[in-house]
Design a protein around this nucleic acid. Structure first.
Length: 263
DNA sequence: CTAGGGTTAATG
DNA sequence: CATTAACCCTAG
């Protein structure tokens, strides 16, 4: 809670989280050298990344709920052993992931090779697994991840399509007075392709599950069923995304800049 | 280069 | 005064 020296920006934190989730905890050098995070972590050293990640992990460990009674610590450096295999990480983490894997039946079929992004789903899953705690996950957290992924996909798309525009922090985190009614824009964003939708769906399933397990959840349960049905249809994914975001906005999400990006 | 330890500084 | 967050140093 201290805001000491030169604090880290959300962009840097996002880049760090993404880097760890993508390459694995460790290999800070690779993350720092990555062209995607280079512009963001240009002033940050590999050691800095490690330090930040360490502090972040520690904070996340005792955050949320102090329920340490039964705790499979899904903390940060959990994937330190081997960064080569991301699949093993998922297998190691969990019980919850298993449920999620069964949640999206139509997702696998919907995997169309429109664009090169085969491991996005895995990334999302891992991200959720990392964030998800045995007692429940914060909606805000998941929403944050969803947002990040969406943005990432946008960047990737830009990359693949044409301009290799570097990541510029044009809009950091700003508390927009008008948080709702952004769904319409999000719809267009999500409709751009499937990976994002898959992510949203997985997140939705996880959210429902986590919430149900965490506290009383009557509406949440029904929501879960609804989400599942929707997932099967695959066509109503947009609605899911909208729902998730709606919930996000209601909770306390900072964020989401309009889809306005120089293409 | 990565991991761990220790120190400094600010916030609550 | 206690805790968190960044920064720096040392060891493997």
């Amino acid at each position: 809670m201290g805001a000491p020296k030169q604090k880290w920006t959300s962009e840097e934190e996002e880049a760090l989280r993404r880097g760890v989730l993508k390459h694995g905890a460790g290999k800070w050098r690779t993350i720092q050298k990555d062209p995607e995070f280079s512009p963001v972590l240009s002033s940050r050293s590999n050691i800095d990344l490690k330090d930040k990640w360490r502090n972040l992990s520690f904070s996340a460990s005792g955050m949320g709920s102090r329920d340490k009674t039964r705790g499979p610590r899904t903390t940060g450096p959990s994937c330190s052993p081997l960064s080569t295999s991301q699949a093993s990480s998922q297998a190691s983490v969990a019980p919850v992931a298993n449920k999620v894997a069964e949640a999206p039946p139509g997702a696998e079929k919907k995997q169309q090779e429109v664009k090169p992004h085969p491991k996005y789903g895995a990334m999302i899953l891992e991200a959720l697994s990392e964030l998800n705690e045995p007692n429940g996950t914060e909606l805000t957290e998941i929403c944050s991840f969803i947002e990040v992924d969406t943005k990432s996909y946008r960047l990737a798309d830009s990359f693949a399509t044409r301009t290799p525009a570097p990541i510029k922090a044009s809009a950091p985190k700003q508390k927009d007075p008008s948080k709702p009614s952004k769904v319409s824009k999000n719809l267009g964003l999500f409709a751009t392709s499937s990976p994002a939708l898959e992510a949203a769906m997985a997140a939705a399933a996880k959210v429902a599950d986590a919430e149900v397990k965490a506290h009383d959840a009557h509406d949440q349960m029904m929501e879960a069923e609804r989400i599942l049905k929707m997932a099967e249809k695959t066509e109503s994914l947009l609605t899911i995304a909208a729902e998730i975001y709606d919930r996000c906005s209601r909770g306390e999400i900072t964020t989401l800049n309009p889809p306005q990006r120089e293409v």
